[in-house]
Design a protein around this nucleic acid. Structure first.
Length: 344
DNA sequence: ATGGTCGGTGGCCGA
């Protein structure tokens, strides 16, 4: 058995170029290659491509059945750490079709297990599902033309997919999708932005947040492993806004919105990012119009919140600000959390 | 600095 070949396991654990591996296993290179493809396809192997130039920053290739190895590929087994943990990201992409090139390279580099997307802005029959399948992801989605739209990508099977609110609230707007992965219930939500506090849209936002609390209270237990991730469009406290004085009473930082977040916390949700970064003043969104990113004038409004049992097994949570600095970025940066893989 | 820039659309609106 190849998986029991201790020399191979050691080489792959340390990392080695394919050409060297083939030289070592020259007598059975065909079976070796088959085994390596199996490892790659099952996400156990990291494939880095630098075209033999080890001074260049390599591209990490996610498995696709249209890709093949080349001799200079650098192969390494995914670490034990990564094997035993699961990563989940949330990202408001602001149009999945326009963002696809950046999403593609980001998936290959970050290799997240689960990705929750908001503002996909595409109807279901035009959703780029096949491309995500090729990249190794199952995908569920519900979208509409021009506005809103949410999706979940997962390397693991998804169960009990639910579209929208259980009670049928606001079913015309595609802002909520839920699925269960490895026993973890995931709610992916895109909360209305709210425009300004004296607008009807702000009343809608508060209404939506209250309905969302009801969705949790009526359908879920705070004692279960539950994640609520997405674009909340609310910054929880002063650390999460670039100018607390100027933002006071404004949309995304209004006391009525903060009260809604407090109620979610009282129900049993915890801000996973804050669990790891108590002092941090980092943001997940910057306004295109004011060129806010260049001046780091932003808000932390994209969140990964969990129930207590999951917070206990949380390992990390980071904002991928580098992503926002890439060409043609979304106005939001991804947030990624890692948890010890639950036993299922 | 009461503007600015994106994305999707269809002859402006939402963020």
């Amino acid at each position: 058995m190849w998986s029991e070949d201790s020399a191979l396991v050691q080489h792959l654990t340390e990392g080695m170029r394919l050409s060297e591996l083939k030289a070592i296993h020259a007598d059975s290179s065909h079976q070796l290659i088959e085994h390596l493809y199996r490892l790659w396809r099952s996400h156990q192997l990291i494939v880095k491509r630098d075209w033999g130039d080890d001074t260049a920053s390599p591209q990490v290739l996610a498995y696709s059945n249209s890709l093949c190895f080349i001799p200079t590929d650098y192969l390494q087994l995914r670490s034990q750490q990564a094997e035993q943990s699961i990563s989940i990201a949330t990202w408001n992409v602001n149009s999945i079709r326009t963002r696809m090139p950046l999403v593609r390279s980001w998936l290959a580099a970050q290799q997240p297990d689960i990705v929750c997307l908001q503002e996909t802005k595409v109807e279901d029959h035009l959703y780029p599902a096949y491309e995500f399948n090729l990249a190794g992801y199952n995908v569920v989605y519900c979208g509409q033309k021009t506005y809103n739209g949410v999706a979940i990508l997962s390397r693991h099977p998804m169960e009990d997919v639910k579209y929208g609110f259980s009670n049928g609230y606001d079913s015309d707007n595609k802002r909520l999708i839920a699925a269960t992965v490895l026993g973890i219930r995931i709610l992916n939500v895109y909360v209305p932005q709210g425009n300004s506090i004296d607008s009807e849209k702000f009343a809608y936002k508060l209404d939506f947040l209250r309905e969302f609390l009801g969705e949790l209270q009526q359908n879920y237990s705070n004692a279960s492993p539950l994640l609520v991730v997405g674009d909340y469009n609310v910054a929880p406290d002063e650390r999460d806004v670039f100018d607390a004085e100027a933002m006071k009473g404004q949309v995304s930082f209004h006391p009525a919105e903060l009260q809604c977040l407090k109620q979610l916390q009282n129900w049993g949700l915890h801000d996973v990012y804050r669990h790891f970064h108590v002092e941090a003043e980092k943001y997940t969104w910057w306004d295109f119009r004011t060129r806010g990113f260049e001046r780091n004038e932003g808000l932390r409004i994209d969140h990964i919140w969990s129930t207590a049992s999951l917070l206990e097994i949380a390992k990390a949570c980071e904002i991928d600000q580098d992503n926002r600095a890439q060409p043609k970025p979304s106005d939001h940066a991804p947030v990624i959390a890692r948890f010890i893989t639950p036993k299922v």
